[in-house]
Design a protein around this nucleic acid. Structure first.
Lengths: 154, 154
DNA sequence: GGGAGATGATTAACATGTTAAGTGAATTCC
DNA sequence: GGAATTCACTTAACATGTTAATCATCTCCC
């Protein structure tokens, strides 16, 4: 079997952890987890957004997002309301307080990102992004070739 | 600020998820989570190994590893014993039952990996591995440049 | 226009990630 | 040689990942 440390999931996990290790302390100092930051960060780019769409752009599963939105709402960092023409949908936006928090964290975050870019190289970083995107695209249509399917009609 | 979807952590997360999505159903059919598989997989490469070293190679934090080992032990997939000359250390090895399980999962796992390699390209995959390793190395010495450190003596 | 099915969001249940604290054994250092 | 420290591992506590189930609304179709 393949050398363990060379497996693709492990390489991606290790690389991501190496990056996140840089950001976590700063976020922590501002009372934010990585996922909470992702959500607030995504909210700054739009006026308002539906929960499902937010889950897509912040790359979180529904249940995780539900919990985090409940918490962010309790901390008054976001605002929620029902969609006008569909009682099922909820619309979320960042609050003034949330915006203020983002602005407090952003400088450090940007500085860390700049340092990473400096160390790794801007060109190489762009190339890495491109290759990761291509990997995603390659696997897009590869519908989980599941062995031992219990039900034939799945 | 940077376009959200272009952040490095997000790219790495999305790529990893695209890969893991392929493996999870098969592992699930065999009653294993991704982390449990990582541990058993790492144990097949050695005769026995201490817990701390296992945490390093399987890239898991101590607390996660403790919990999972407890579970794998209860399922008789691994064996545990104390180190001979140091009562603090615990030594872990895979059991015959665990080995049998690995052998049952491996073919599907290898097939999925082969398909990923075919789609993405073997050369490109190797290059991606190299770039991820370089990224890790670039950030190795970058001791969390924490802003707003509460204590000056940290 | 009302009931079956689809849809958006949440809740539930269990496993892991993450940091801090605890426990017992080894080492250090007067 | 024993108190203080360090070390390996585990527990604790809380947040998120993951899948399944629930709940309310909406749509469709008869």
């Amino acid at each position: 079997m393949r050398e363990f440390s060379r497996s693709l999931p492990m390489s991606l996990l290790r690389a991501r952890e190496a990056v996140m290790r840089q950001f976590r302390p700063s976020l922590r100092n501002h009372g934010l987890t990585e996922q909470q930051w992702r959500i607030l960060r995504a909210l700054t780019a739009v006026d308002e957004i539906e929960v499902t769409e937010l889950a897509r752009v912040a790359f979180l599963l529904g249940p995780s997002l539900s919990r985090i939105l409940r918490d962010l709402d309790a901390r008054a960092l976001i605002e929620r309301k029902a969609a006008e023409n569909d009682g099922r949908r909820a619309v979320v936006s960042i609050s003034a307080k949330g915006l203020k928090l983002i602005e407090a964290v952003a400088p450090t975050s940007e500085a860390i990102y700049a340092e990473i870019t400096r160390r790794y190289g801007a060109r190489k970083l762009a190339e890495l992004h491109e290759m990761l995107g291509a990997l995603e695209a390659s696997l897009a249509g590869m519908g989980s070739a599941d062995d031992a399917e219990v039900e034939a009609d799945e």
